[in-house]
Simulated scan of single mutants.
Amino acid sequence: MDTAKAWVERWELQQQRYAVDREERFTVITDVVERATAGRTRPLLLDLGCGPGSLSARLADRLPQAEIVAVDMDPLLLELGRTHHSDSARYVDTVIGEEGWTDALGLERPLDAAVSTTALHYLPEPVLLDTYRRLAALLRPGAVLVNGDHFPPDEAPCADLTAYVGRRRAERTGGHAHEDWQSWWTAAARDPELADLFAEREQRLAGLGGGAGDEDLTTGRHAALLRQAGFRHVTPVWQFGDSAVLVAVKDDAGT
Rank of each mutant, 00 (worst) to 15 (best):
K5T: 12
K5R: 12
K5D: 00
A6H: 14
V8H: 04
V8A: 04
L13F: 11
A19K: 01
A19R: 01
V20A: 10
D21H: 11
R22N: 02
R22L: 07
R22I: 06
R25F: 00
V28A: 03
V32T: 09
E34L: 09
A38R: 14
R40F: 00
T41L: 08
T41K: 13
G53N: 05
L55N: 00
R58H: 07
L59E: 02
A66E: 04
E67N: 09
A70D: 02
V71N: 05
P75Q: 04
R82A: 08
R82Y: 07
H84K: 14
S86I: 10
S86G: 10
G97P: 00
E99D: 12
T102M: 06
D103H: 09
D103W: 04
L107H: 06
R109P: 00
P110M: 03
L111A: 02
D112I: 13
A114S: 04
A114H: 00
V115M: 04
L120Q: 02
Y122H: 08
D130R: 15
D130S: 15
R134T: 14
R134D: 07
R134A: 14
R134M: 12
R134H: 06
L135T: 11
L135E: 01
A143N: 01
N147W: 01
N147C: 07
D149F: 05
H150V: 12
H150G: 07
F151R: 08
P152Q: 07
P152G: 05
P153W: 05
A156R: 15
C158W: 07
A159K: 08
A159M: 09
L161I: 14
Y164F: 14
R168W: 07
E171D: 12
G174C: 12
G174L: 13
G175A: 11
G175R: 01
H178Y: 10
D180S: 15
Q182K: 13
W184Q: 13
L194G: 02
L194P: 00
D196L: 14
L197A: 12
F198D: 08
F198H: 15
A199N: 05
E200C: 14
R201L: 11
L205K: 11
L205I: 14
A206V: 14
G207K: 14
G211S: 04
G213A: 14
L217N: 01
R227G: 05
R232V: 05
H233I: 06
V234E: 01
A244Y: 03
A244I: 13
V245G: 03
A248M: 12
A248S: 13
A253Y: 03
